[in-house]
Computed example of a mutant assay.
Amino acid sequence: MEADAVARATDPGTISTIAAQLRALGLSPGATVITHSSLSRLGWVAGGAHAVVLALLQALGPDGTLVMPTHSRHLTEPADWANPPVPEPWWEIIRAETPAYDPRTTPTGYMGAIVECFRTFPGVRRSAHPTVSFAALGPLAEHLTAGHDLDDGLGESSPLAKLYEADAWVLLLGVGHDNNTSLHLAEYRADAPKSYHRQGSPVVVDGARRWVTYRELDDDTSLFEPLAKDFAEITGAERIGPVGAGTARLMRQRELVDFGARWLSQRAANAN
């Protein structure tokens, strides 16, 4: 991967060059932004993930708030695991012995090096949801991460809904809209049939570790790319530019979620 990153880059990315590219894209000081990222897609960066986080914070300045999804999907119901599955005799052991979610120490899973680095920064606040938490740093961090309910963790009681209220931005660094968690909020808000399943995770309740169950939406991320393609073409509200050796996309979350809810509603209506 290191060789691939070098091959992708004309010049090494640095804190100052990445911050300048983010500002040129339209990320302004004082903004609130939820960022999804792939370090390898940005080419070779001096300082790696650490430098990317510092560049984001530099672009936002002290009045801005940086948010990232810090999901830990390894804390889910083992009976549902498919990639890979685990033997059924293991299920009860996993439910009984997996460490409880701790916002301070639980690592992220499959979220990338930039997210895992950001999670450890001094002052970062992380929401209490065991599988779909969000971390934030900045003036709105405490507000955005508080009160994250177990049921419907990407819905109306999630940090995504608070980001919508705050008129935040969505920044995709080297990744596509299939990684865009804000579109899950659009799924919840769409006038379309919905189905749910029971999820389970280890958490701390009244000082004791417990395995708890809660409701989770059956999502369909396969729709996110065509939805976002229409959003960009119809609204012209998606900004695209280079960051390092990769491509970045920036848009207002509120515009994207509103468009997405309408798009999904219309798709459901056309299917009937």
Rank of each mutant, 00 (worst) to 15 (best):
E2T: 07
D11P: 00
L25F: 15
S38A: 12
A46M: 06
A49L: 10
H50F: 07
A51S: 14
A59M: 07
L60A: 05
D63K: 08
P69N: 08
P69W: 10
T70K: 02
P84S: 01
P85R: 05
P87D: 15
W91I: 13
E92S: 08
I94T: 03
A100D: 04
R104Q: 15
T105G: 12
V115M: 09
R119T: 02
R119Y: 08
V124A: 11
R126G: 09
S127R: 01
A128H: 04
F134E: 01
A135T: 03
A136L: 07
G138T: 02
D149F: 10
E156D: 15
P159H: 00
K162Y: 08
Y164V: 02
D167E: 12
G174R: 00
H177K: 02
H177T: 00
H177R: 00
N179L: 13
N179P: 00
N180D: 15
N180V: 00
N180C: 15
H184L: 05
P193A: 11
K194Y: 04
K194G: 13
S195N: 08
D206E: 14
A208H: 14
V212C: 09
L217I: 05
L217E: 01
D218E: 11
D219H: 13
T221G: 01
L223A: 10
K229D: 12
A245M: 04
G246I: 01
A261C: 09
S265L: 03
Q266T: 03
N270F: 02
A271V: 02
